[in-house]
Write a protein that binds this DNA or RNA. Sequence first.
DNA 1: GGTGGCATTGCAGCATGTGCAACTTCCATT
DNA 2: AATGGAAGTTGCACATGCTGCAATGCCACC
Lengths: 258, 258
Amino acid sequence: MSQTVDRALSILPLLAEGPANLEQVARRLDVHKSTALRLLRTLHEHGFVYRQQDQRYRLGARLFALAQQAVESLDVREIAHPHLVALNERCGHTVHLAVLEDNEVLYIDKVDSRYPVRMYSRIGKPVAITVAAVAKLLLADLPEPERRAVAERLDYPSYTARSTPNAAAFLKELATVRAQGWATDLGGHEESINCVGAPVRGVDGRVVAACSISAPNVVVSAEELLHLLPLLRRTADAISAEYSGNTTPPMNSPKEKA
Amino acid sequence: MSQTVDRALSILPLLAEGPANLEQVARRLDVHKSTALRLLRTLHEHGFVYRQQDQRYRLGARLFALAQQAVESLDVREIAHPHLVALNERCGHTVHLAVLEDNEVLYIDKVDSRYPVRMYSRIGKPVAITVAAVAKLLLADLPEPERRAVAERLDYPSYTARSTPNAAAFLKELATVRAQGWATDLGGHEESINCVGAPVRGVDGRVVAACSISAPNVVVSAEELLHLLPLLRRTADAISAEYSGNTTPPMNSPKEKA
DNA sequence: GGTGGCATTGCAGCATGTGCAACTTCCATT
DNA sequence: AATGGAAGTTGCACATGCTGCAATGCCACC
């Protein structure tokens, strides 16, 4: 809507691909060099862009700081985290937390069995929305018309032979997920990887996030993974309860009983 | 320099403090509501801003994705180089910068000694991973299981009598290095050459690179080399700071509001 | 010392962003 | 229901401030 800002913001993803000099930026934006220069200067003043010795521009540190703050301000994540850690300790597999934002599903937290807690490694990347268990859970909760609209609008990449092929199949799957209250992704994204997911709900019962357990075939079969469903659902419910304020305070490790 | 972009970008740190509605944003920017609305719309289209159910604005997902890509393209070497040169000017010895890549430690930069001695190192070549100071620093930062796995997998060539003999000794050494935050190689690779190394850390505190000072016995004793440790560590810390964006780079610094 | 590539500057013209005021929507209150 | 207020949204006339051009500066490489 605002041409100038629109152009300026377009520079950022462009630079994310790698450093670029003024002329390259100008050409990609299809504007005059002087225009690009002014935009870059403004971005630079705000620290979104950094200029290296060879005068090429690259993304600046301010982005990290902002992304960091943004992820920290997600309160679901904060509440969920200890539960996810506990779940990971119980089952040993990778645990994800995801939310829906503007028709994209993104991971906002992850606990990996091998790399405990660490930085936000893959966090922030959009997930394969047509196949991921967490995506199904989040979309299944949308009101019918919107769900249909989204399903219609999506692409259905064939990651594997078991990927969701089209909108019709996806809507059917969403209906199933909605009814049963949990979801799976059995080799739909990567042939050898299975997931089970469960929804986190807010006070009003709407799905605000979804968490999942992922594990490769070679470690546990899909069937064995499903045995973890009760544990997963208890975790998701515990997060829901705490998020809605319906339960006892955080205290220490909210571990669950077998 | 560009008013519109300047205003738009100012919105982001503002939202980083927490969600805000249109009027609050307009007031903070000191512009009319309609102006703020248009800026926010543009930010929204680019995914930098997200609108929650209560219509308040929040930082959006695109920030995560960008920060992610940016960190991948960050080149430590470019940032580190001037620091390494400065260090070399101060101490006169050979200075190295190394990173870990696919279980190999690679020198990615080197400033040669001003003394007439040659060192057998080449940029891009793998280093003697079981003895080099930089290798110890990089491996010491790995999560425990992986560290162990790597140590187990390595060969332990006896370059000299003081080379690391086996996995057990190596792991013990790594534990020491991890604890003290610096490392040495005292004649472990070449009988007459000693090194001290210090880690370069990224925003998340993980070791992303390591730099070292190397010098032959005939020029300085091991003990004298250790006297350079404080200088080395200051250098490494300066690189870390700049790499993490915690400090302003030499010349082109973002503007300061005075 | 010339040449080419790229960044930078100053400027005139007008596209584009701006603020205003009217309109809508929603919700709380009577 | 009706009323009032608070917040978001829209259309528009004005002029600010953005745009592209052309000229200049800067460097590195022949």
